[in-house]
Lab assay of single mutants.
Amino acid sequence: MDTYKLILNGKTLKGETTTEAVDAATAEKVFKHYANEHGVHGHWTYDPETKTFTSTE
């Protein structure tokens, strides 16, 4: 398992979190669920070199 990072740049919520996942697709599902639960619906990007997802509203 690898550690993946999420950076949230929402209108009402900003911050970072991490998750352990078997691959990027699994981490993306976890992070999108997390963002949706916190009302963040933004544009998603992923940097495979740093294993970092960013959601920007």
Rank of each mutant, 00 (worst) to 15 (best):
T18E: 08
T26H: 13
F53N: 00
V22L: 12
S55N: 14
H33E: 15
K11H: 13
I7L: 06
G15N: 10
H38G: 04
L6V: 04
K11L: 15
G39D: 07
H41D: 13
V22E: 12
E16P: 03
A24T: 05
A21K: 00
Y34V: 05
L6G: 03
D23P: 01
D23N: 09
G39F: 06
Y34K: 02
H43F: 14
N9T: 07
L8H: 02
A35Q: 03
H43L: 14
Y46V: 00
Y46I: 00
H41P: 05
A25L: 10
I7G: 01
T17V: 15
H33V: 13
D23L: 02
A27R: 00
L8W: 09
F31I: 00
K51S: 03
E16I: 13
T45S: 12
P48F: 07
G42H: 03
V22T: 12
E49R: 10
K29D: 08
V30E: 09
F31D: 01
N36K: 14
D47I: 05
A35H: 02
E28P: 00
A27V: 01
H33S: 13
P48R: 07
A21F: 03
E37C: 11
T3S: 06
A21H: 01
E49V: 10
Y4R: 03
T3H: 07
F53R: 00
K11N: 11
E57A: 05
G15T: 15
Y46K: 00
V30H: 13
A24P: 10
D2Y: 13
T12P: 03
T3M: 09
D2A: 12
A21P: 01
T45E: 12
A21Y: 01
T26A: 14
H33Y: 10
K14S: 11
V30F: 15
E16L: 09
G10A: 06
T19S: 04
L8Y: 10
T45R: 07
T56E: 10
V22C: 11
E57T: 05
H41G: 09
F31V: 00
T56D: 12
H38L: 15
T18K: 07
H38I: 13
H38T: 06
K14Y: 13
E37F: 10
L6I: 03
A21I: 02
A27S: 01
T18G: 02
E57C: 05
F31S: 01
H41E: 12
E20H: 10
A25W: 09
L6E: 04
E16F: 14
T52V: 07
T54A: 06
T17I: 15
G10S: 08
M1Q: 08
T19F: 12
T50V: 05
W44R: 00
L6Y: 03
E20W: 11
T18Q: 09
Y46R: 00
T18V: 08
T54W: 10
V40W: 13
K11E: 10
E28D: 03
K14H: 10
E20K: 12
F31T: 00
Y4S: 04
A25Y: 09
T54L: 07
I7R: 04
T56G: 05
A35F: 04
T12K: 11
K5N: 06
P48A: 12
L8A: 02
E16Y: 14
Y34R: 02
G39N: 09
N9Q: 09
S55K: 03
T17K: 08
V30C: 07
G42K: 02
N9D: 11
K51G: 02
H43I: 15
H33L: 14
M1D: 06
V22W: 12
K5D: 04
H33G: 09
D47H: 06
T54R: 07
A35M: 09
T19V: 14
F53Y: 05
T56S: 09
H43W: 13
Y4T: 03
T52W: 02
M1N: 08
W44N: 01
K51M: 07
A27Q: 00
V30N: 06
I7C: 07
K29M: 12
G39Y: 04
T12L: 11
E16A: 08
T26F: 06
T50L: 06
E20N: 10
Y4A: 02
E20D: 09
T54S: 08
T56M: 07
D23S: 07
T45N: 08
F31A: 01
K11Q: 12
H38Y: 10
I7Y: 05
P48K: 08
A35Y: 03
L8K: 00
H33K: 15
H38A: 12
K32Q: 11
E37Y: 09
A27K: 02
A21G: 02
K32V: 07
K11R: 12
I7A: 03
E37H: 09
A25T: 10
N36Y: 14
H41A: 12
T12F: 14
L13R: 07
M1F: 12
H43G: 07
Y34L: 07
K14I: 11
S55C: 15
T3L: 12
T50A: 06
T19A: 07
V22N: 09
V22K: 13
K14A: 08
A24Q: 09
N36F: 14
T12I: 10
H38D: 02
H41N: 13
T45P: 00
V40P: 02
Y4L: 03
T19Y: 12
D23F: 02
T54P: 00
Y34Q: 02
A21Q: 05
A27C: 01
N9C: 15
T18D: 04
G39M: 06
L6D: 04
V30T: 11
E28W: 15
N36H: 14
Y46S: 00
M1I: 09
H33P: 02
G10V: 04
Y34N: 01
T17S: 08
G10N: 04
F53A: 00
L13F: 15
V40K: 02
A35P: 01
N9V: 14
I7M: 05
A27F: 01
T18N: 05
M1C: 13
N9F: 11
T26R: 05
D47W: 04
K32G: 03
H38W: 11
H41Y: 15
V30K: 09
K11P: 12
W44Y: 03
A35G: 02
D2T: 14
D47R: 03
T3C: 14
K14P: 05
M1G: 09
D2E: 14
